[in-house]
Computed example of a mutant assay.
Amino acid sequence: MTTASTQLAAASGLMSLVLFVVAVGVLALLAGGFWMNSRVKYRESDRPRADEQPGLPVDGPVGEVQENRESAEVPQVPKGGRPLTPYELTNMDSRPSASKDRPRWSRGSSGSFGGGGLGSH
């Protein structure tokens, strides 16, 4: 056996020892994580029983409501006035629409901005 092969064998032995120590460290971290998780779960309150669950309202289940909504108009800026910033525009509320007709997309339109599809046929 030459001196070079002896040095190579010693270096690989040291490398395998380092990898073993790193693997043991990772396993210790995982085990510690499971241990801490079990301690946290043990301190949590119990799950509610079936009789503690919320029930239906007295009037019965709430039905589905279908209505058309109209959004509020964006305020117009007077001529020569400065434009409004997004912070000056409030949360634009909507209100029930007087019309009972459901809005339909125009023929050949996909109905969404940038949908890229062929649209209704």
Rank of each mutant, 00 (worst) to 15 (best):
Y87V: 02
P83E: 07
L118R: 13
Q7I: 08
L19R: 14
N91S: 09
E67N: 02
G80L: 01
S99F: 01
S106A: 12
L19Y: 09
G114E: 03
L14I: 04
E64A: 14
S106Q: 15
V58I: 06
T3I: 13
G108F: 03
S110Q: 10
E88K: 08
S106V: 05
R107G: 13
A31L: 15
Q76H: 07
S112F: 04
D101K: 04
Q53M: 15
M15N: 06
P61S: 08
L14A: 15
R104K: 15
Q66P: 07
N37K: 13
G117A: 04
G111Q: 00
T85A: 11
P83N: 07
E64K: 14
A9H: 03
Q53I: 05
R95Y: 07
S45D: 14
S71W: 02
T6P: 09
E73K: 09
T85N: 08
S45I: 15
R95G: 02
V62T: 01
D59E: 12
G33D: 05
D51A: 14
W105A: 13
K41N: 14
R82Q: 05
F113R: 15
S112Q: 05
P48V: 04
A98Q: 05
M92W: 00
A72I: 02
S38F: 09
G13E: 12
S45H: 09
P75N: 02
E44C: 14
V22I: 11
G80R: 05
S106T: 06
A28G: 10
P48K: 06
Q66V: 08
K41I: 13
P75R: 04
M36H: 12
S109W: 07
P75Y: 02
R47K: 10
K79R: 13
G25N: 06
G108L: 00
R102K: 12
Q66E: 06
S45P: 11
R102A: 03
P75V: 03
S112M: 06
A72V: 07
L84M: 10
L118F: 10
P103W: 05
P75I: 02
E67C: 04
V22Y: 06
N91D: 15
A4T: 13
E88V: 08
A23G: 12
V26A: 13
S97Q: 00
G81C: 06
G117P: 01
M92F: 01
G32A: 15
S112E: 05
S16P: 01
P78L: 02
T6H: 01
G55M: 12
S97L: 02
P57H: 03
A10K: 03
R39M: 04
D46E: 11
N68E: 00
G115M: 07
A11C: 01
A11M: 10
G25A: 12
R104I: 07
G114Y: 07
E73W: 01
W105P: 02
R69C: 00
L29K: 10
L29N: 07
S120N: 15
Y87H: 03
P83K: 04
V24I: 14
V65F: 05
R49W: 04
L29D: 10
D93E: 15
R69T: 03
V65Y: 01
A4D: 13
R82K: 08
S112C: 06
G115Y: 02
P48Q: 07
